[in-house]
Write a protein that binds this DNA or RNA. Structure first.
Lengths: 204, 204
DNA sequence: ATCGTAGTAGACCGACCAGTCAAATGCAAG
DNA sequence: CTTGCATTTGACTGGTCGGTCTACTACGAT
């Protein structure tokens, strides 16, 4: 059991070293060697736990997804909140998170899922599928929320699935533009407009 | 003058070789050597025309920007069209372009400006500024269009600057999500909702 | 004819890349 | 005490990276 903990420790030290690097730079720009040095681990140990760089980045994706799912996302999609306020909350959370990262790191890092998607999805279908699954789950959260808002009469009926996808796209797009400006304040200015997006039910 | 043409030819052959590569892969994943081989040019010649890889990608960015400005964008933002129809046209153009690329290349490549922004903007402020300028110009096009739509009474008054930025963000976000799905049809389904985005004039 | 210069050629540089491997170590179960 | 496996070590591979350098060619201007 002791061994298990040590092993887990090495593995998680690698992930902990990799996370901020993949977030702040890019997949291709971060090398295994650098991660090993930062984690205090030898090459051989690294490849004991991860068959390839791709497997590492997948673990990093999971780590970020868990962090979000257990943090801001869980707070935002609290069933106790009125549906549309959950969306406000999520936008706020994204804004404050990006802002705090910029204060510490000096730069807007954006969304790691979006970053990786645009970098690797033409080159690696396995990574693309992994990232797509993250987006699909996020879309479901939006969709449920919209359905509840419609059921509650807060908003008129609409195509919840497509509108959810549109909202997710908008959020990613705003983060992209904010990153181009290195300014999280754009999220503050543009974020709330996410609720104006609407796709009507197609007539059939 | 003859020399000028030959020189221009070499330079533009390099750019022509680089364009599809940077578009379909990533900045870091495309090497100078590969570009030289594809363009039939030696390393020395390459560095005669481009001081660095960054200068090449800037020329590539300009080439894409020109291609768009003289093509679809010029068609879409035709003053003869009713303002809001120009936006429809632009979405259509983006959709058909991505679709045709996928038919030829087998993949959704997305927007090279968005791709590069997420990849390099934390690592190279000069490239970030270059890309930001592209987005700023695009935003201006949307803004003028919205202002004209308001003047014509087609849509109620709104904050044209912020709404234009929101629309640009949405477009980039939809392309990002479509790339994650490797499916340009998402542009077709989500694109038209761009016109539902609205940011009201702030009260001051 | 010759000089200057734009362009070309291609070997070369040190650094880094992802990934491999054989040998050693540590530890738990028998 | 021994066997066996998880883990670690660190040297090593073949290849690529962006970029440099010197020599050479081609051509226009004087």
């Amino acid at each position: 059991m002791q061994r298990m903990n040590i092993a887990t420790d090495t593995r998680s030290r690698i992930i902990a070293a990799a996370k901020p690097r993949f977030h702040s730079r890019s997949y291709a720009n971060v090398g295994i060697q650098e991660i090993c040095e930062s984690a205090g681990v030898q090459k051989g140990s690294f490849y004991h736990f991860f068959p390839s760089k791709r497997d590492l980045v997948m673990a990093v994706i999971d780590a970020f997804a868990d962090e979000w799912a257990n943090g801001f996302v869980a707070e935002a999609f609290d069933p106790a909140l009125p549906p549309m306020e959950r969306i406000d909350y999520l936008i706020d959370a994204a804004y404050f998170w990006q802002k705090s990262i910029k204060q510490v790191h000096g730069r807007m890092l954006g969304c790691i899922f979006g970053n990786l998607t645009l970098e690797v999805s033409t080159q690696d279908d396995i990574l693309r599928a992994k990232l797509l699954a993250i987006f699909t789950r996020a879309k479901s959260r939006f969709k449920e929320t919209l359905e509840q808002a419609v059921a509650a009469g807060t908003i008129p009926p609409l195509d919840a699935g497509l509108t959810a996808e549109a909202m997710l796209a908008y959020l990613e797009g705003v983060i992209l533009l904010a990153k181009a400006q290195n300014d999280p304040e754009l999220l503050y200015r543009l974020g709330p407009a996410i609720k104006t997006l609407r796709i009507e039910l197609s007539g059939d």
